[in-house]
Design a binder for these strands. Structure first.
Lengths: 336, 336
DNA sequence: CTGTTAGCGCCTTCAT
DNA sequence: ATGAAGGCGCTAACAG
């Protein structure tokens, strides 16, 4: 038998009985309706206090068809930018009185579908999805059950869907253009397995821009892993031979691997080796040399997402898409 | 009017009606009871599929007095080690079929109490608390409502309480002892406002050890903030004058501030300046010089915490306290 | 302003 | 093996 964590709780019935009023009246003071005499309100409040009564969100949810609970779907990867997004979402949710349920997903279709199902079962009032493993069909599944969603990083539209776009494209293209305007080193794109649609898309952007500039033969995809150490080794070997290059990495820790490998080979940054971090964190400023990066305040992304969600639920959401544009922070790892 | 996210849902009633069986039988197949004919089970499963029925966790929770939901209370600080703990907890929760509700708290008593109240209202089956702002009274409040809890980082005991201890003490004392066995530079402890009981405690440990070694006059508390830049400035000024010291910082980014300030002053690490990160992350290995640190796998802490919770709920928890012991990783920022 | 009553969706004895 | 009925704790008309 499981531990009955909420058996024998004080219920609204007891409050009613003890205070001498009816259910309805007690319910009214709980829900802060104004049609209650100050006097009886006080009495009821007193007995609530005295009995230590706390309303059951479960019962309230069932009765009102509202759970005041918002589902958060994030990739189960421990990246700093993800926890920044999370922080933003949770902070704002708290302000608006929403609870948050956290769902981590792995890049596996079956798991994703299971997550969607749990999301539906758990009766969240809405869901914020920031996970590249999610696809169109997942959104429409959610839509079938009328769960309002805001999607981060993918452009999806529909009745109950809002989306937040993360535009790294222009900044990225600009970096590449400028690079080939003055220099000609090849570009090495650190390719991680299953990086998610956002990073996948950005790799595509690089490829595309290279071909626009007729530099396609200078684009090299370098397979690496999420591990700093392994990536370091790969890059070390590569640089030992090539001695130079313009490296683009999706995350700071990978950029650091490039930087450290360069330094250990006595290659100078940014003269021999240039590095660009696509998703910069505070460590791009801490690291020496400081890493040039495309920056976008992910905490802000999370908080805006949650704000959109609350407006969505109050049916006051006007603008159903919001775009964040990344800025280029030229620091010590690039020559421009 | 709020968006009725789950009005008009397919309910168990419809499944019963359409399939031609009763509520009870449908309920049985949902809950995988075995006293159902394979044949009727199949029929019911079919219509569930056909209708797209998903049980409501809310209703289930209300009926069973179990929410399969575990509350997670964490400080609203965006530290890497916290998101590691979180990952560990969520990953394991998923395995055991629990949902997780996330509560971030600020170091403010009123907020904390509010969080405790929400925790109780939200009918979590249990709660894992890793927040230094929490005090004895909060745990006993939770206990009043019979919410099983596991507390990380504080030694609390009681009927429904398990706790995970994070023992950095010995490792820290050892570092200090070794330091004064061979050297004599003063110790500078980077003191952040409201660092939480864990770090507060560790500062006390340092003070205590210093006095044991009769070196109390060599202990200096350096007030800094959470900001890398501000901390850098403080340390830069300090080192410009002192030229040397053994710095102890609670987190990597602060240690990095010390390291960078030293380098910018042409002080060498670890000859002039030594640095010890109390809570090391992967960046202590990435940073150059590599930072010596006390390491403890926080993901593991989170996952063990969740494992204890699941056992708790199944009433199979034998060992109600678990201790993690930090190890000293001597790297390039210390001489030993 | 307050009380009565019927659900919300599901589980669970107790019969059959 | 299956069905009927009461209850989980609360809210929301509808009366009064």
């Amino acid at each position: 038998m499981a531990s009955s964590s909420f058996k024998n709780r004080v219920t609204i019935y007891e409050v009613a009985k003890v205070s001498g009023y009816s259910l309805a009246t007690v319910s009214r003071v709980i829900n802060k309706k104004d049609n209650v005499t100050p006097e009886t309100k006080k009495k009821i409040l007193d007995t609530i206090e005295r009995l230590g009564y706390k309303p059951s969100a479960l019962a309230q949810g069932l009765a009102t068809s509202k759970s005041t609970n918002i589902g958060l779907v994030l990739p189960a990867r421990n990246y700093v930018y993800i926890s920044n997004v999370l922080s933003g979402m949770v902070d704002i949710a708290k302000i608006y009185g929403y609870q948050t349920s956290l769902f981590y997903t792995k890049p596996d279709r079956d798991e994703v579908k299971e997550t969607i199902e749990k999301l539906i079962m758990s009766h969240v009032d809405g869901a914020i999805l920031f996970d590249d493993a999610l696809k169109e069909e997942d959104f429409s599944e959610l839509a079938k059950y009328k769960v309002p969603i805001v999607v981060i990083g993918q452009n999806v539209s529909g009745e109950n869907i809002a989306s937040i776009l993360l535009d790294f494209d222009n900044a990225l293209r600009q970096c590449i253009q400028e690079h080939y305007q003055y220099f000609k080193e090849p570009i090495y794109f650190l390719h991680v397995e299953n990086p998610g649609v956002l990073v996948e898309h950005l790799e595509q952007v690089v490829v595309d821009e290279m071909s626009k500039l007729h530099q396609e033969n200078k684009f090299h995809k370098v397979p690496v892993t999420d591990s700093y150490d392994e990536t370091y080794d790969v890059i070390y070997k590569l640089l030992k031979e090539k001695k130079e290059g313009f490296f683009i990495a999706s995350r700071d820790s990978l950029s650091c691997a490039v930087a450290n490998a360069s330094l250990d080979l006595n290659l100078t940054i940014p003269n021999n080796v240039q590095i660009l971090s696509i998703i910069g964190t505070k460590y791009s400023k801490i690291m020496r040399p400081k890493l040039s990066s495309l920056a976008l305040d992910m905490y802000e992304v999370g908080s805006i997402a949650m704000r959109m969600m609350t407006k969505f639920l109050e049916q006051t959401l006007k603008q159903k898409t919001f775009t964040f544009t990344a800025e280029v922070n030229h620091r010590q790892s690039s020559r421009l």
